[in-house]
């Protein structure tokens, strides 16, 4: 169950959002690759990178680019740092804890805290929400 819940939040594009200022490798559909740090991204997967090393499809020519914009639709895949998944998970846990303590303070003990558990416990399929 915890994995289902955490998965819902770290959707591919949320992961990309969390990768801001992190190094990454982007390969385009035509095979060109771009190595750089993510500056910004949007929900179309359009991205801007800084300090970029561009490589052609054959991997034998290189260019250094200060900053570049890549249209999302041209992307094949992105490779991001392995630790990113843990970072995102930690941030979510922290946010959840913060949220809980704030709510707890307002609702008082046994107030809304229990009500939150209700819908999930009732869910017949046991799959959590949203799928």
């Amino acid at each position: 169950m915890p994995s289902r819940l955490s998965f819902q939040k770290s959707l591919p594009l949320s992961l990309l959002n969390a990768a801001q200022n992190k190094p990454m490798l982007v390969e385009l559909k035509n095979g060109e690759t771009f190595n750089g740090h993510l500056v910004n991204c949007d929900n179309f997967m359009n991205i801007t990178l800084r300090e970029v090393y561009q490589t052609n499809a054959d991997g034998d020519r290189f260019w250094k680019v200060k900053e570049c914009y890549i249209r999302g639709s041209t992307i094949k895949y992105l490779r991001v740092p392995d630790q990113l998944l843990d970072v995102v998970k930690d941030e979510q846990n922290r946010a959840r804890e913060a949220n809980r303590s704030v709510r707890g303070a307002h609702a008082g003990p046994g107030g809304r805290g229990r009500a939150r558990g209700g819908p999930i416990a009732r869910g017949g399929r046991g799959r959590g929400r949203g799928i």
Partner: peptide, 27 residues
């Protein structure tokens, strides 16, 4: 897709090889 602990596999004849690639976000 988000793929963790990814390896790329190539095949040739009756052999294969793997290359470590890590965390992938595939369009």
């Amino acid at each position: 897709l988000v793929l963790e602990d990814t390896v790329e596999r190539i095949y040739s004849g009756n052999t294969f090889a793997e290359k470590w690639c890590g965390l992938f976000l595939i369009r």
